[in-house]
Amino acid sequence: MKARSTSRALAAATAALLTLGGVAACSDHGGGGTDPDRVDVVVAFYPLQFLAEQIGGDAVRITNLARPGAEPHDLELQPRQVGQIVDAELIVYLAGFQPAVDEAVAQNGGDRAFDVATVQPLLDAGAGGHQHEGEAGHDGETGGRDPHVWLDPTRLATIGDRLAERLGTADPERAAEFTARAAALRTDLTKLDADYVQGLRTCQRREIVTSHTAFGYLAERYQLEQVGITGLSPDGEPSPQRLAEVAREARSHQATTIFFETLVSPKVAETVAREVGAKTAVLDPIEGAPADGDYRSAMRTNLQTLRTALGCS
């Protein structure tokens, strides 16, 4: 059904060349064996894994380069993982989000690489809220573009359609199966989108104060305003001036909740919350796999969190 021409010797040689600073990030998936009955797909982080699982089903073998529970922005690759990229029949990634993956794909991906950032134009980093010049993290990723495209379920559905096409090219005998699964996923995501539109239609507030400026797509889609404490990078350290500015904005909007996320420290959000007398709550950017459920359940949890914090009826 499928052919593979890359040898283990080539994988080892490429891995040696691309050992990026001797890093030691690890994956919970096995080594790069081959399966003649399934398409070998390497994905760069969780939302792309979700798409591949939903659309590929039993016809794909998926390797996620990002370790569960780790922040995927700063992923560094082991030689073994570079070998998995070399051996993959399809590599699904988002250019600009993970520099180590970009480098490995540039040298080894060829026509097997599928950059989901090419499906639709990415939003500017300041979309959905305030743009704060000079704050750490705004310009470091995707050339000033926001990579968190999966937080708009309608955009994720379109990426799923294109992924089905790429899988169909890799395994033509199952192309119709991939297309049907993508259509079913689009139905699910359209329902999720409708629930967001309805659930956030009438709210007392429309501003969300977040520790990490990751929610521009969600804010733009559902007519919210994002006030980010740090920029696109969750590791960015806000200046005292920025903390004071966010506190002023939170007070002016009568924010009752300061949001932090699952994979980074809540300390910055807690600092602002104490300053303005607000609560803190988790708003998940879904960069890593949810502890329970999948992308859809995490998005529905986010919706309920937003409805509570924003006083939606």
Results as ranks from 00 to 15, higher is better:
H138I: 14
T158H: 10
I159R: 02
T169E: 11
A164N: 01
G126E: 04
A125G: 14
H138E: 15
E173G: 14
E173F: 08
A164M: 07
H138Q: 15
L122C: 12
E135C: 07
T142E: 07
I159E: 01
D152N: 15
D139Q: 11
I159Y: 01
G137F: 00
P147G: 01
D161P: 03
L151E: 10
A176P: 06
T169V: 15
R155V: 15
E141Y: 11
Q120D: 15
E141P: 00
A117Q: 06
F178D: 04
T158G: 03
T154Q: 12
I159P: 00
P153Q: 09
A125F: 08
G129E: 02
P121E: 13
T142G: 05
G137C: 07
L123P: 03
A157L: 06
G168R: 00
V119H: 08
G126H: 02
A175Q: 11
V116C: 00
A175F: 02
A136I: 00
L167M: 05
R174D: 08
A113S: 12
D115A: 13
G128D: 05
Q120F: 13
D161L: 14
L156K: 04
A175L: 06
A117H: 06
D152V: 07
H130L: 14
G129A: 08
Q120K: 14
L156E: 08
P121F: 09
L122F: 14
D146W: 08
E177T: 11
G140D: 15
P172L: 09
G137L: 06
T179H: 09
L163R: 05
G129V: 05
A164R: 01
L151R: 07
P147D: 07
D115C: 11
T158M: 09
D171I: 05
A127I: 02
L163P: 01
T158N: 08
Q120R: 14
D161F: 08
